[in-house]
Design a protein around this nucleic acid. Structure first.
Lengths: 211, 211
DNA sequence: GTCTATAATCAGATAGAC
DNA sequence: GTCTATCTGATTATAGAC
């Protein structure tokens, strides 16, 4: 039997408060950037005294890194297990659908990640240089195999990946502009379906695949 | 004869200093956002005392608006004069080329505009709602005419425009990520050519046009 | 674990000498 | 037009009572 069982819900408060703070922090960081966000504003949004933020996360920089780390985990599981034997059309269809879905469900995550990159990626430079580069390398190999096998047009795999990222994340990052230009208050399920179909059509057909 | 001619280069200093300040401000705003940027940092970068910034531009908000206004002017001249009689393939080729070129030549402008939108477009909401929406409306009519004439696949024109914007501006906004993943220090002329050709191929072919 | 009070620093903006 | 000095308020972070 676990000894901790006798203690009164030991990590429960901590877990809940950390969650509250991370959520509030993400919102504030998206609205005002890292430097522009005050710890006070995060505390107010989380409904906690400012000092508690410093109690749970040593300082603003640590908190920001924690938020970014959560985001990277959330967006990391796509295209995970493809091989040269898979059907490229089906793989691309699934990736595009998944990315549009993520943009729909977690626009704020995408926005904060985008802001970090736009500002020169000062906090995640190393992640891009190592993990992300490794990931891209392994995927491009599969694309190259498909091209060599004549399964798709010879599109540079790296730029194809950029194209999928940019077109799908655009609906999260530029949400404000997109919705205003479409004269809508927020995305509906229908919109997501239409966007996905549109992107799948253009990108797959553009790669010489059957949409 | 102009009376001002007798005065000692009246607007010269003002013009030069305003230019210096706008340039420095754009750099700082991209790096730290509106709230995160201090007037002192802009002054330091411009090589002027802080008080001069307030002399030329009433306050930080005015300066920021001036920078954004410059950016909008710079990016505004594309797709300006297309008609239903034009060849869609040629128009799209030119637009993509022009947008990639702008991203190459003025990445900072694109970045700052992107940050403003990501943060909810607090300073340019009205511009998007009026001028930009009007512009999109007029262009979609041309696309619709092309589709009705069977000149291209029935791709929703609005999403096609978003696709062109997102894929081209990605190379400016996500410059840090793109260059790191491509293992390069900066874009070369060759890269720009390759990127343009790749985007032209996929998008045009994806729309049922001849790349 | 929680939160008030406070220290030390930095921000935007302006007055006023030059 | 230029720039130093300064006001006022906000900022991060911490100390210490509860």
């Amino acid at each position: 039997m676990n000894v901790a069982v006798k203690k009164y819900k030991p990590g429960k408060i901590r877990e809940r408060n950390e969650e509250l703070i991370l959520e509030a922090a993400e919102q504030e960081f998206v609205l005002h950037g890292f430097k522009g966000t005050s710890v006070q504003a995060i505390a107010d949004r989380a409904g906690l005294p400012k000092a508690n933020i410093h109690y749970y996360f040593k300082n603003k920089s640590n908190l920001y890194s924690a938020v970014l780390s959560n985001i990277i985990d959330l967006w990391n599981d796509s295209l995970e297990d493809i091989t040269a034997d898979d059907d490229p059309a089906e793989v691309l269809r699934n990736v595009i659908r998944k990315k549009v879905e993520l943009s729909y469900l977690h626009p704020r995550s995408s926005k904060l990640f985008a802001m970090e990159i736009i500002q020169g990626a000062p906090h995640i430079r190393e992640y891009i240089r190592s993990d992300m580069r490794q990931w891209v390398r392994s995927k491009t190999k599969v694309f190259d195999a498909w091209i060599a096998a004549g399964k798709m047009d010879p599109i540079d795999p790296v730029h194809l990946i950029f194209m999928i990222w940019s077109t799908t994340q655009h609906y999260a990052d530029f949400e404000t502009q997109v919705l205003t230009l479409m004269n809508r208050a927020e995305y509906e399920r229908d919109d997501i379906e239409r966007i996905t179909n549109c992107l799948v059509h253009v990108i797959l057909k553009g790669c010489g695949l059957n949409p």
